[in-house]
C-alpha cells in the first residue's frame, strides 16, 4: 500500500480483528500499515479485497 499523503510505500506491521456489524461474522480482519516517511496510519479491511 502507498501512503495516501506522501506516496511512500507503507509497512504492514500488524493485523487486528475489528468489530464490523456489516459482515455476518461481526468482525473483520484489518491490516495495519504505517508510513515510514510521514507516520500516517492506514487500516486495510480484508473485505475490501473481496
Amino acid at each position: 500500500m502507498r501512503c495516501p499523503s506522501c506516496g511512500t510505500l507503507m509497512n504492514r506491521h500488524a493485523e487486528k480483528l475489528i468489530k464490523d456489524s456489516h459482515v455476518p461474522e461481526g468482525e473483520v480482519l484489518a491490516s495495519i500499515h504505517y508510513c515510514p516517511k510521514c507516520g500516517k496510519v492506514e487500516a486495510e479491511l480484508e473485505r475490501d479485497d473481496e
Binding site: N11, R12, H13, A14, E15, S31, Y34, P36
Partner: peptide, 8 residues
Amino acid sequence: YGRENISL
C-alpha cells in the same frame, strides 16, 4: 523502528 521497518 518496528512500525517503519519490520513487516508482519
